[in-house]
Simulated assay, not measured.
Amino acid sequence: MFVCSCFGVTEEQVKGHAEAGARTPRQIASACKAGTDCGGCVRKIQALLGRGACPRRELIDQGARALTELEEAA
């Protein structure tokens, strides 16, 4: 299934770039140009990367888990 029709980028290609280390739509764009023309696919790319792909969000989630563990241990 195509994610970016402007450059013919598929969902599998985006997932492959994510597995190779791309964590943001900008990094995906650098890897394959998806999202750099009309921009209509940027939200789909964000969805494929998932909310957990945001490094700041991951840190917040880790902190929340650690806090929960501390509270449960007390």
Score class of each variant (00 low, 15 high):
residue 64 A to R: 15
residue 65 R to S: 09
residue 15 K to Y: 05
residue 22 A to F: 05
residue 53 A to H: 02
residue 66 A to D: 12
residue 47 A to E: 15
residue 31 A to Q: 06
residue 22 A to R: 09
residue 3 V to P: 00
residue 5 S to P: 03
residue 64 A to N: 13
residue 66 A to R: 06
residue 57 R to E: 11
residue 39 G to L: 05
residue 69 E to L: 15
residue 42 V to P: 09
residue 18 A to W: 01
residue 15 K to V: 07
residue 49 L to T: 08
residue 13 Q to D: 02
residue 68 T to D: 15
residue 25 P to Q: 08
residue 32 C to L: 03
residue 33 K to D: 06
residue 68 T to G: 06
residue 49 L to P: 01
residue 10 T to H: 07
residue 16 G to I: 04
residue 34 A to V: 00
residue 7 F to T: 03
residue 38 C to Y: 03
residue 38 C to S: 06
residue 15 K to C: 11
residue 69 E to Q: 13
residue 74 A to N: 11
residue 12 E to S: 14
residue 53 A to R: 00
residue 74 A to G: 15
residue 16 G to V: 04
residue 49 L to S: 02
residue 70 L to Q: 11
residue 34 A to G: 01
residue 44 K to E: 11
residue 38 C to W: 01
residue 4 C to D: 07
residue 64 A to M: 15
residue 66 A to N: 04
residue 7 F to D: 12
residue 43 R to G: 15
residue 30 S to K: 13
residue 30 S to D: 13
residue 42 V to A: 07
residue 41 C to I: 03
residue 44 K to R: 14
residue 72 E to Q: 15
residue 26 R to K: 14
residue 42 V to Q: 06
residue 41 C to S: 04
residue 25 P to V: 05
residue 56 R to D: 10
residue 74 A to P: 03
residue 2 F to G: 01
residue 31 A to M: 05
residue 37 D to A: 06
residue 45 I to R: 01
residue 29 A to E: 02
residue 8 G to I: 06
residue 7 F to Q: 10
residue 31 A to K: 12
residue 61 D to P: 02
residue 37 D to P: 01
residue 36 T to M: 11
residue 72 E to H: 14
residue 12 E to M: 07
residue 37 D to N: 10
residue 4 C to R: 02
residue 12 E to P: 00
residue 4 C to W: 01
residue 5 S to E: 12
residue 50 G to E: 04
residue 35 G to H: 00
residue 6 C to D: 14
residue 12 E to C: 03
residue 74 A to L: 12
residue 44 K to V: 10
residue 69 E to C: 05
residue 11 E to R: 11
residue 18 A to F: 01
residue 40 G to Q: 09
residue 1 M to Q: 10
residue 26 R to S: 13
residue 27 Q to S: 11
residue 73 A to W: 08
residue 27 Q to G: 08
residue 12 E to F: 05
residue 3 V to N: 00
residue 12 E to K: 15
residue 57 R to D: 09
residue 11 E to K: 11
residue 19 E to Y: 11
residue 62 Q to S: 13
residue 42 V to D: 12
residue 41 C to P: 02
residue 15 K to N: 06
residue 21 G to C: 03
residue 63 G to C: 09
residue 42 V to N: 11
residue 53 A to D: 02
residue 29 A to C: 05
residue 20 A to T: 09
residue 10 T to E: 07
residue 57 R to F: 12
residue 35 G to N: 00
residue 73 A to Y: 08
residue 7 F to R: 10
residue 55 P to S: 10
residue 51 R to H: 10
residue 4 C to L: 04
residue 67 L to Q: 12
residue 50 G to C: 04
residue 22 A to N: 04
residue 26 R to Q: 13
residue 24 T to Y: 03
residue 54 C to I: 11
residue 37 D to E: 12
residue 20 A to G: 10
residue 72 E to S: 15
